[in-house]
Design a protein around this nucleic acid. Sequence first.
DNA 1: TTAATTCAGACTAAAACAGTAGGATTTACA
DNA 2: TGTAAATCCTACTGTTTTAGTCTGAATTAA
Lengths: 141, 141
Amino acid sequence: MKLTTKGRYAVMAMADLALFKDKGPISLTDISIRQNISLAYLEQIFIKLKQENLVKSVRGAKGGYVLDVPPEEIKISNIISAVDEEIKTLNCKKESKKGCNNKSSKCITHNLWDQLDQHINSFFEKVKLQDLVKKNQTANK
Amino acid sequence: MKLTTKGRYAVMAMADLALFKDKGPISLTDISIRQNISLAYLEQIFIKLKQENLVKSVRGAKGGYVLDVPPEEIKISNIISAVDEEIKTLNCKKESKKGCNNKSSKCITHNLWDQLDQHINSFFEKVKLQDLVKKNQTANK
DNA sequence: TTAATTCAGACTAAAACAGTAGGATTTACA
DNA sequence: TGTAAATCCTACTGTTTTAGTCTGAATTAA
């Protein structure tokens, strides 16, 4: 799982959408101001979120974005993998091409890294978008 | 926790040292060949491992490196943090400087990232160098 | 018609990553 | 005492990734 600000921005933006989901389409300008993320960068991010069918767009004035899936059904891992393409921490490609097998001691860390990756993934699999916003919901509704 | 090949190389090299710890100082040339890591790069890595007192060096011909701590007492997290300086996934610095508090919805992902970081850290805290090598020990002793 | 908005793609500065390169120093051993 | 094997030390460097910017087109509510 690659963890960059892009992924974090995506989660922030999605949380923002979830928080204001009853107010119709939310413009990226609004999110940009509230979350302090550059508008142009958000645009890039939302193209990908849309491709993964996490959000729907409404074009033109008064347009914006709306969640296409209820927040309790969106896993954080869905959001991050939507914008950050790669889902692997560090792969053992070089070694595996050369025949990374457990017969030699060459790749004794292989399993470790694999396990970590599963750990991180399962962490983000468990957390739903809804989990993030429910704490803030009372304050903003 | 930053996860780069440097950290992985460090773990691999330390595992190699642990595996051959009864054979006196192990030269980086040997490790370089066995683990297929550039010698010059290993040198850099070992400078740091030495600074953290994870290994001892023996200079001169027939010299090399030896573990300075028994492998059952070395956490993987010790190794990685020794070579990869930074121990945080992604920090919320910008926001925290501007006053990232939970009063606003600005930083709702802050906690999430913090939790993840703890998750990763605790993962590498639990695993000891000894855990990695014991599987290979019979084969190489 | 105009302003607000998404859509699209190219471009870019800066940092991180993954090393190289070159030499100095130390020491076992012949 | 000379030499080869090793660590030590510090710069340098090519490539990729990151985190955007920039420009403009298309769409649509008012």
